[in-house]
Write a protein that binds this DNA or RNA. Structure first.
Lengths: 345, 345
DNA sequence: TTGAAAGCGTTACCAT
DNA sequence: ATGGTAACGCTTTCAA
């Protein structure tokens, strides 16, 4: 039965001052070894645990990190978001931090940050899903709330801390692979292009095409929430059109599964009649591994990104005034079963 | 510029006591209308916001709800879990509660609950993914920490508050539909059967079969994490075996997509050669709606469950000592394109 | 090495 | 209707 002893009671029991007990428990050096031992033992015995609210009030640090998710993000990026969160959460736990998640209506996002700052709910926040006309970083600077961006804020790369994968390069490499395989009609099924990551992916795609003398064809590019039906419906439409693509470059496994479904429904074979390369966030419930992964993919673990983002943020918090840091992860290009040479015409 | 005024400064500015200001802001009735107006105005002007740590310390309530997720859960139930969280989060926000999520190693789960209780990190918790030999509820009772179970704890239905869908009945109805369509060889691709929900689904399946004089065939039942490859590989194996099933009953959309892939790879057609019914948690990134949904399914919104679970828990917290409540949701059985009459042999 | 006492910013009790 | 003051449970400064 852990009874809920507090510091006062504990110190009384030990015939020591609260001060000493606190110091002993918090590892201050000036406590004698013997005292420290006695204190820890008794604390253990009485099941003492410091009240976090009290400690937070006293120290002025809330020992929590906030994640604000507007509905729009979580509807769109649902599983990816959780995987990131899971990674970040691991890091927080390790360092004794709590993770606070605020699910808010889209137009209350700023309010949420304001509250976190003014009510001291968290010592820092992670900014998710930066868009092309991002503004949250300005607010956060004004609020003096440390933050790390998952992704990049165009034009503010130098003045903010962020972690991102090399979206442009990943899609450039994927495109080149398809070109090498002889594909020339390549479709792009991208995420919402007001999101920075999606814009970069498109850029990588188009640049690779142009560099090899191909003109990007608007008719072969779509941008939307990365759902399964999005992949299926658009692939279907394109495959049934005149001059259909022989390859698809897709922004998420989920949509790629949809594309594969469309391919099947058209009586074609993935990896033979139609090639697919997808980005793979390494989501645990959608494993794409094995000796030969189902999908050829550009892979970058979003969970790992979460861990790293959290580390970055905690470091910023413990060293206020330090320079912005950023981490640029490179995606791997992994060959799976969904690509093959372009079919002869 | 919200400067971070505190109650003391605010009350000084107003020539009022902290007490009165606090009362005015917290809506106590004994404050004159005029005073309240003045206070609110000044509070607004100076950008006052109460420090949550201080308030928590003073009130003794942490105004937060905890969710402990051991890795095993989130690896398994990733997207479903997030959708639930999102629903719960909406409710918390509405009521001024924070949501804190602890991602812990599997063998630290109990510790996490102990800490939440002893350090007063949250006023209550949600218990996710109850298993057949569930024990967490006992610990939580001992810790005196209010909780609501998402799912049911076998044998403790009366003494705990929970929200669950009718898993048994949903799978019973789905099985009956398949039987009505003439299918007799029906495969079950279930979640991990140490989980209570999976066990109930299996029961519904087997009972329906027996009630119509069919003997469940072990060779047609599998149980695992509900990933996409799980669906594909097992369906493939069964379809290629002798005496293959003509229908699949699947525990999650993700695996069902895998089954559909296998069906396609075998050169068969879903809804014609092979029928599929899946449970659909109504995940936002896997929409299965439209005039005719892709998959025939038993559907129950896990997001809605999250909202309700949160409401239940908040009610418990505001009325301590109240009786356990529970909510039993019924899944809808929705006809989509993935079912049809059993093919003639 | 230890202790006394003053915060931290609220709320809540008891007066008035 | 308003105010004084004591909690709440910890950390931290200053003394010893």
């Amino acid at each position: 039965m852990s009874k809920g002893v507090n510091l006062k009671e504990l110190s009384k029991k030990l015939n020591l001052s609260q001060t000493t007990v606190s110091r002993a428990l918090n590892g201050y050096p000036e406590v004698s070894a013997e005292t420290r031992r006695r204190v820890s033992e008794m604390a253990e015995e009485l099941g003492y645990a410091p009240n976090s609210q009290a400690r937070r009030l006293a120290t002025g640090r809330s020992m929590a990190i906030g994640h604000v998710i507007p509905r729009s993000i979580h509807e769109m990026m649902n599983p990816i978001f959780l995987e990131f969160i899971a990674g970040a959460g691991e890091t927080y736990s390790k360092h004794g931090y709590d993770m606070i998640i605020s699910v808010v209506e889209d137009d209350h996002e700023e309010d949420a940050y304001r509250q976190i700052a003014s009510r001291k709910k968290a010592d820092g926040v992670i900014v998710h899903g930066p868009t092309s006309d991002e503004r949250r970083h300005k607010l956060l600077k004004k609020l003096n709330l440390p933050f790390v961006v998952h992704g990049r804020i165009p034009g503010a790369e130098e003045e903010t801390s962020w972690i991102d994968m090399n979206n442009r390069r990943a899609f450039e490499r994927a495109t080149n692979l398809l070109l090498d395989l002889g594909h020339t009609r390549i479709a792009l099924l991208n995420g919402l292009e007001h999101m920075d990551f999606a814009k970069r992916r498109r850029r990588g795609f188009e640049e690779a095409l142009r560099a090899r003398g191909h003109k990007p064809d608007q008719a072969l590019m779509r941008s939307s929430d990365m759902t399964e039906p999005f992949g299926c419906e658009n692939a279907m439409e394109m495959l049934k059109g005149d001059n259909p693509p022989t390859a698809f470059l897709v922004s998420s496994m989920i949509s790629a599964i949809g594309v594969a479904r469309a391919v099947g429904q058209c009586g074609l074979k993935t990896g033979k009649d139609v090639s697919i390369i997808t980005h793979d966030d390494a989501l645990s419930f959608l494993p794409n591994s094995g000796e030969i992964p189902i999908f050829t993919c550009t892979r970058s673990s979003v969970r790992f990104a979460g861990q790293k983002a959290a580390e970055l943020l905690l470091a910023m918090i413990s060293e206020p005034g330090s320079k912005p840091t950023s981490l640029h992860l490179d995606a791997e290009l992994i060959i799976g079963q969904s690509t093959g040479p372009a079919p002869a015409r």
